[in-house]
Design a binder for these strands. Structure first.
Lengths: 128, 128
DNA sequence: TTCCTTGCAAATCGTTTGCATAATG
DNA sequence: CATTATGCAAACGATTTGCAAGGAA
């Protein structure tokens, strides 16, 4: 169960760090393919899952049924554009207090929440 | 593009209204099958999608990659148990103000948000 | 009769896995 | 050498779709 270094994993991590747009597994694959012609989709998926489990990256599920990945693991929220599908970071105050609000009349134990916002992104707002 | 009455759609809607546990398409299908032996999965999916588009039911995506459906379209929030996977309604105050918080420094237009909570449900909390 | 809806099966899409081989420690 | 990681292709699970036949207006 120990970890061994791999060129592929390193490249995946590097690629993710250069992007602010939360690419999908397929986007990672397609891009890496250009500099790493025979990397396989399976390897990309395996490593993304591994990195997410290690907490080095974030797996983002925004309801479009394909997972997005984010190398920025700090606390922040996402916005999804209904028109172009872009996943954008929001600069906003913490809303973690919603967990207390939710826990008030609840018999179980709330560990956390998942929140994302949707609407029209700045770019699409202008062009319409 | 107009709408015609269908026995199947009616049964699906009725079934959904009897349940508080936000069943998946497959659960709807399996249950209806008992009183409606040759309804097909495709029909169930088509009608669930149709009803959700009409706004008569809610499609809930809780990250377990299978959609859940809810006949209760009033404003409320959901909790997902990490242990048993149950999707439970939360009785809590509105947190819709998070939309304002999110919109403060954002150039686009925020229409809404999706929030769900996760942790251990009352039942699983007791039995552990 | 018109055209929406169904049942069925095949097709799609995103993701996972088995296996033999290659790379790492 | 002991193991972990890879590439490839086949397998998967959820959902969608094409098509001919059935049902509602």
């Amino acid at each position: 169960m120990s970890l061994k270094h791999s060129r592929q994993r390193e490249e995946i991590m590097n690629f993710l760090m250069t992007r602010k747009d939360h690419p999908t597994a397929d986007v990672v694959y397609t891009n890496l393919r250009q500099t790493f012609p025979n990397i396989s989709l399976g390897t990309v998926y395996r490593n993304l899952t591994l990195l997410a489990d290690l907490g080095e990256i974030l797996r983002i599920r925004v309801g479009d049924k394909t997972d997005h990945f984010d190398a920025d693991t700090s606390l922040h929220y996402h916005f999804i554009c209904n028109e172009c599908g872009a996943v954008i970071d929001l600069e906003m105050d913490s809303i973690e207090s919603v967990v207390e609000t939710a826990g008030k009349n609840f018999g179980g134990h709330i560990q956390g929440h998942t929140t994302f916002f949707y609407g029209t992104c700045p770019k699409c707002t202008k062009s319409s």
